[in-house]
C-alpha cells in the first residue's frame, strides 16, 4: 500500500512538473498576450493541482496535509481569477485578442512570416495539382453531389407549399 502511494505521488509530481514546464515554454514562445494568458492558466491550474496532490499523497493525513489542501484549493481558484483580471484590464486598455501587437522589430518579423506562409501555401497548391490527388478530389466531389441528391430526395413538400410554388411559376412569366 505504501509503495503504491509512493508511486502514485511520484507520478502526480511528474505530471505537475510536465505541466509547469509546458506552461512556461508557452509563456516564452507564444506570440500574443492573450495566448500567453492561456498558457499561464494551464500552468496555474494543472501544475499546481498535480503537484499539491502529489505532496498530499506523500504526506498522508495530518495537519500539514490539510494546510497543503488549503494552499492547493486557494491557488486553484485565485490564479484563474488573477489571469482573467489581467485579460480584462488589457482588453479595456485597448488590446484586442484578434490582432497581434507588433512593436518595433517584431513588425518586420511578422511581415516576413506572412510572406513565407504565402509561399509555402502556393507550393502546397502546386503539388496538389500535379500529384495523384485528383482521384481524391473526384471522390469528394462525388460524395458532395450524392449528398445533395439525397437531400433533394428526402425533402417532401407539403401541399400548401406546392401550390405556392406553382402560383409563383404561373405568375413569373
Amino acid at each position: 500500500m505504501e509503495l503504491l502511494l509512493a508511486w502514485l505521488s511520484g507520478i502526480l509530481l511528474a505530471l505537475g512538473t510536465i505541466a509547469l514546464l509546458v506552461g512556461a515554454l508557452g509563456l516564452v514562445r507564444l506570440p500574443n498576450l492573450f495566448s500567453r494568458i492561456h498558457a499561464v492558466g494551464m500552468m496555474d491550474t494543472a501544475g499546481v493541482a498535480f503537484i499539491t496532490l502529489g505532496m498530499l499523497l506523500h504526506e498522508g493525513f495530518s495537519l500539514i496535509s490539510v494546510k497543503l489542501a488549503v494552499v492547493g484549493i486557494f491557488l486553484f481558484f485565485t490564479s484563474p481569477i488573477a489571469t482573467h483580471a489581467v485579460a480584462q484590464v488589457a482588453y479595456k486598455g485597448g488590446f484586442s485578442p484578434l490582432e497581434q501587437q507588433p512593436v518595433g522589430k517584431t513588425k518586420v518579423k511578422a511581415a516576413k512570416r506572412k510572406v513565407a506562409q504565402k509561399a509555402s501555401r502556393k507550393k502546397v497548391g502546386a503539388a496538389e495539382k500535379t500529384g495523384a490527388k485528383k482521384a481524391v478530389v473526384k471522390k469528394i466531389a462525388n460524395k458532395i453531389l450524392a449528398g445533395k441528391k439525397a437531400a433533394t430526395k428526402t425533402v417532401t413538400r407539403t401541399p400548401a407549399e406546392k401550390q405556392k410554388k406553382a402560383a409563383v411559376k404561373k405568375g413569373a412569366p
Binding site: G23, T83, V86, G93, F95
Partner: peptide, 9 residues
C-alpha cells in the same frame, strides 16, 4: 501586462 502575467506565474 506580459510582465505582470510572468511575475504572477
Amino acid at each position: 501586462f506580459d510582465r505582470l502575467l510572468a511575475v504572477n506565474a
